[in-house]
Amino acid sequence: MSRTQTIWIGIGVVLLALSFFAQNLLPDYAVRVLTITCINALLVASMAPANGMTGVFSLGHVGFVAVGAYAAGILSLPVATKGSMLPDLPGWLAGWYLSFLPSTLVAGCVTAAVAIVVGAPLLRLSGHFVSVATLGFLVIVNEIVINADSLTRGARTFTGVPLETTLPWALGWLVVGLIALGRIASSPTGRAWRATREDVVAARAIGIETQPTRLSAFVLGAFFAGIGGALYAHYLGSFSPKSFLFAYTFTLISMLVIGGMGSLSGAVLGTVVVTALSEVLRNLERGMDFGALSIPPLYGASQIALGLLFIAIMILRPEGLLGPREIRFPNARSPKETTHDSAAP
């Protein structure tokens, strides 16, 4: 394990220890923002393998988040609640329920399974087509959720999921996700991911099969998207199909892109930057009173500002703040690693 990884894990463990105190010491608002930031960071990081590293730009990631959220919700609803909330639930699902951690893990696995089925045909496409098709996947998930009334309550709000996600849980999952994704991204598998992005033909020439390579990134990302969705379900307790559509998709993508596609530290950085910005703007957007001067509420203004920032990044720094690089701590013992800077063509 490299020094950088060791230091990151150390930081993660320290933060995790602090979070147990933080959730009691900090105001509720701060704890809420931090918890959501952790969940979002996990979701954004889980986009990095497919979208950033293999260059298959999926717009369907939020579809996986939805699968995870609904799977966790259905699995963890107490039996009594199931009877009233989901009276038409098939028998094999109705009579039992899982607690927080198992339901989260199963949600991740279910989502990964969906990703295998969906990814196998989709990832044979390339470029724009894969983006359009994955957006189609998002729409399909939405349509199924709305129409599969007996499982999901259709378009109505799904409520009653036990509120279990605390700040330490969210941060803990983020740390676990980052360690897992980071380890794999720096392994031969991760190098194969990046090879399929840089040059498909060259990757093939050295024996890297594009499709299975990309699929592995896609499915791994989907697993953590499912975990993130489950954390969401257990954090909010209630959600509806509307929660998992284009707006959320764009928020996650902007976090990924602003931080730097293809980098896990970029994913976290982007999430923090965008969340901080949105929180500030959201407070401004409610309107203000400076004595004589009062600004009326402008709902939607914070989103517009985020969109404009995004376009500015695209024009001025299309690789995002970090590009494909990770934040590194120089290693005293081994020769300095040269960061590979893949300039835009």
Partner: peptide
């Protein structure tokens, strides 16, 4: 790149 073009148009939609 394709991705930059695509993302720019996504941002425009969002705006």
């Amino acid at each position: 790149s394709d991705v930059t073009l695509l993302l720019t148009s996504l941002a425009v939609t969002y705006i």
